[in-house]
Amino acid sequence: MGQLLAQILVNGLISGSTYVLVALGFTMISGIMRVLNFAHGEFYMMGAYGVYVLTQYGLGYFPALLIGAIIVGAFGVVMERLIFRWVIGREVNGLIVALGLSVVLKALALIIFGPVELAVTRPVHGTLDLGSVSIPYDRLLVGGCAFGIMLLFYFFLTFTRVGLAMRAVAQDEKIAAIQGVRPSFIHAAAFGLGCLLAGLAGGLMAPIYTVNPTIGELPMGKAFVIVILGGLGSIPGAVVGGLLLGIAESFFSTLIDGTVSAMLVFALVVLVIIVRPQGLMGRSL
């Protein structure tokens, strides 16, 4: 039993860590711009296709992951300047715009790549066997990278000037502006960074699963559950919520089954909404 619990925990932590990457960008964009970017899953999808295309051109996996994510981030900046800046602070309008963009991006992927499942060559093979717990190396890599990226993101927000300005804008945009922060710059930067994180998550998961135009839907759904769980706009909430969701899912679906697990997770979310409407960690960036 102890052995099984350890395996459940490891599985949950690894899948949870990838949920966190998607949720972080989603919650940050919502915190800074008051925009619920429901196209966030499609930026994840683009990151996965980015890795696929770049490795097809002979690039190594890691350069492809990085370059792909940067391209996705840059595309996010363009989308913010073209579309999202007009709906900042108007959550319903933003939601509709994002849903529209999501449909368009999926359709574009379908036109360009077709409905087929594409595979990205795995950077590592094999399974790490620790006796009681076995972890495939590629998942270990994904988990490690995800935690590394979380740490970098934390340092960025805490110790850099732009990171500080992002937190300030999230808390009080007008007062941040009179300190000399240009809000439009922070909006574009935050949106781009959020999309870059989603792109990284997509690129990390691409070799684990397959790539098709609809792969963004599932992580988007998870990210939404996580930010409700952790508190909309809350960075610590996204981390705690993501890991909690990963572990809860792993626990329930190993010990009971997948369907019951989905139900129980949903029940957990409803419970949080009723007991703590502001989420586990409240709203602060």
Binding site: R161, L164, A165, R167, A168, Q171, D172, I175, A176, Q179, V181, S284, L285
Partner: peptide, 12 residues
């Protein structure tokens, strides 16, 4: 900025 420390507020 309530979530920032005093030092971070001054840095802003």
């Amino acid at each position: 900025f309530p979530g920032l420390t005093v030092m971070e507020n001054l840095a802003m």
